[in-house]
């Protein structure tokens, strides 16, 4: 995180004052020292150059301080702050979008679950309805069939009794004919019929 310097006019003014003062004092001192005229052999200790160096140093450092404190540093600080702001804003946006996406996914999922539940219900209902309908149909068909069966059984029974009647009549006639053939006497129909009944009863 960039920390922007709070512009402190007081400090700047103090610095400038000190710089100016020190330049003046040192320049005077340098001038005083050079007066004897002893020729310095080692350049860094050659006091005749001190005044000029201090003068130009004060100017160049003053310009640099002014450029840095008023132009460069606030600008770079602003750039860094803006970037930090952009990044955090983007991150916030991303987080919001993610939350929204998650919400949507949740909604979708709940809708899906609901739909699934509904589908199950519908399927169950359909299955139940189908089962009921087929049961009913089966019952109807079964009833029909049993009615038909009963009718058929009745028909069979009546046919059978009719046939048995016919068989008995035929039997007694046959018995009369056989007796007549064997004995030459023909029994009466009632006798034959009694005899047939007796025989049938014996099995």
């Amino acid at each position: 995180m960039p920390v922007r310097p709070s512009p402190s006019l007081g400090t700047a003014r103090a610095g400038a004052t000190i710089a100016a003062l020190s330049v003046l004092i040192l320049a005077e001192a340098a001038q005083a020292q050079t007066a004897p005229g002893a020729k310095a052999s080692f350049p860094p200790f050659d006091a005749t150059t001190f005044a000029g160096q201090l003068f130009w140093l004060a100017i160049s450092f003053g310009v640099l301080y002014w450029l840095m404190s008023t132009v460069a540093l606030p600008r770079v600080g602003a750039i860094l702050e803006e970037r930090a702001g952009t990044i955090s804003r983007d991150l916030d946006n991303a987080a919001q979008m993610q939350a929204k996406a998650e919400e949507t996914a949740k909604a979708y999922e709940s809708a899906l679950a609901e739909a699934r539940k509904n589908a199950q219900g519908i399927a169950q209902a359909a299955r139940d309805a189908g089962a009921k309908a087929s049961d009913e149909r089966r019952h109807v068909v079964e009833a029909e069939l049993s009615a038909k069966l009963a009718a058929a059984e009745a028909t069979i029974a009546s046919t059978k009794s009719a046939a048995m009647q016919n068989v008995r009549g035929l039997g007694s006639e046959v018995a009369v004919a056989i007796v007549a053939k064997l004995t030459g006497q023909s029994p009466t129909a009632s006798e034959a019929s009694d005899a047939v009944d007796q025989a049938l009863a014996r099995g």
Binding site: A27, A51, G52, W56, S60, L64
Partner: peptide
Amino acid sequence: FGLDLSFSNASLFMALTVAAVS
């Protein structure tokens, strides 16, 4: 004022320093 304030090679490099930093 009798002060030697000549623009020297030192002054030149001070100016270059400021220019490079700027």
